[in-house]
Design a binder for these strands. Sequence first.
DNA 1: TATGATCACTAAATCGAATTAGTGCAACGG
DNA 2: CCGTTGCACTAATTCGATTTAGTGATCATA
Lengths: 317, 317
Amino acid sequence: MGTRRVTMRDVAEASGVSPATVSFVLNDVTEQHILPATQERVRAAARELGYVPHAIAKALREGSSRIVLLALPQGIRGPGLDAYTRGLDDELARHGHVLLVRHGSPLHGGLESVVASVAPRAVIDLSGLYQHEAADAAAGPVTTNDGGWVDGLAAHTLVQLLHLVRAGHASVAVALPEDPGWARLAAVRLGFARQASVRLGLAEPVVLTVPRDKAAAIQAVRDLRRDHPGVSAVAAFDDAVAMQLLAALHGLGVTVPDELAVIGFDAVEYGSFATPALTSVHIDAGAYGQRAARTVLGLEPPADPPAGATVVVRESA
Amino acid sequence: MGTRRVTMRDVAEASGVSPATVSFVLNDVTEQHILPATQERVRAAARELGYVPHAIAKALREGSSRIVLLALPQGIRGPGLDAYTRGLDDELARHGHVLLVRHGSPLHGGLESVVASVAPRAVIDLSGLYQHEAADAAAGPVTTNDGGWVDGLAAHTLVQLLHLVRAGHASVAVALPEDPGWARLAAVRLGFARQASVRLGLAEPVVLTVPRDKAAAIQAVRDLRRDHPGVSAVAAFDDAVAMQLLAALHGLGVTVPDELAVIGFDAVEYGSFATPALTSVHIDAGAYGQRAARTVLGLEPPADPPAGATVVVRESA
DNA sequence: TATGATCACTAAATCGAATTAGTGCAACGG
DNA sequence: CCGTTGCACTAATTCGATTTAGTGATCATA
């Protein structure tokens, strides 16, 4: 319990050199000439004593820690985000940094206080993407850098609608989640869907917001089919919305894809469990995470853009 | 860009006092007598200059940062864990700490290296709960503290099975996920289900592992019904498994709950979208997170145990 | 043989805040 | 009028690692 931490000074004393020398040896400082024999002594002592460099002291000297903070809003989850996070994390790990995720909480005084108490190397704040506008860039190293993910969404939305056009649909609806947490991203996606519709010669897409309550969802779908009988396919915001839609359609007795086709987004594996199995768009979100990592670290982003989206064809469209 | 950070020394000079005095004022050190007028000058200068204490320097002095690290394995997600995390975070926030989540990655050299580079006040390592045995407690402040969550699981599993017994079922199956990431927790849950069965006078529960592939899942359910025709209800590991089960049952043409009842666990809201709507067990996971927070901070845990589980009765059981 | 270059290290300052041990001054008691 | 106490502060040290500016010693060159 009470055993004090092993410091560089301890290692220095144990190996009969100065702390400076220990630092040079342990950090492989090439500008300094240290006898191989001495190096070995120092390393041995460090190993023996179980020396672990004190990250905070190091961070104080370097000016910031090797933490990169990813700020996310409260309840936002999803396979795309998971993959993005993993890509980010892996790339960061390759450069000796650590990704830590901060889930927003109303009890904290906002991101600034967290940033202040962590002093991260960089902050990737994605909360603006989901809720309000990007926060004021007042304090420190906060970026809304997403590695081009939102831009990529435009292309991916095009792929989603293209699949519908290829299958012969001429009038489609876009299904959006009701959850206000997704509101902003939903608006962005809708904008891209509109642009894609123009490019593909589709009619202006009808917007369908899918309520969380099943009865209400059924009602919403019923209204859609009454008001827009020409709509023959629905492009969903994500697979979760698509599956809610499928459930509502099942409740209404509408056959999918014959009467109405449904295509998801993000290709979760349990989409195959839906009835009928959900057709969806797969995205290489990890690549965007990787790009974001390289950008915040000040590295050259990979020349080749992330792979495009692909359609996972199952049964629903 | 190049503007250097405002330090305590700057505030001291601006208000004509020593850095020590600034520290006393800004930290409300009551043992020191500082004239109210001086205090006001210092505070004004701090405000004016936009002084923000340097967290790393503070952490170096205090010995550790005010970060609490929650270590989770790679792909583990779920509503229970979300609620747990939120409870943890909120309680930590009340005591001036920040929760940061670390998702395991094979690229990092394990948790120790992350702990070394973050120097958190405490670490809550839940990865052992899901995968291997609790890691060696070698380095620092790592706890497998879960606030009694796993223990609570025993009672909650009892509630789940009790609902089935009350509905007249005498022989049940337990449905477990195939994903190896959940293997350990699944084993724990199965153990509790066995204990509960004994207490409730049920037959030894049959184990059903639900494959991720739909066709395989259907086959597994078919086998179950052939080999154990007496089984009239299934208690699922969580709602995700329950919904896969429901889909497989639908594919087989088995009516729920008449031919086979299904009850989930964790009560996700989209369970209401299943056909039939999923009956499930709701758990106050947030309370366990709160307990965990108080424990790692060395505070008195709340006297009253977390609220028990409740059954959200819908249609499937 | 003096000059300087190279080698193998060390002393001391630095990062920014917290804290212990004072210091000078005024008021008060005996 | 001297000693003590209380007040309002300050100087200096500490936390642990990094880094700049050296310091002797050895070796080579002119």
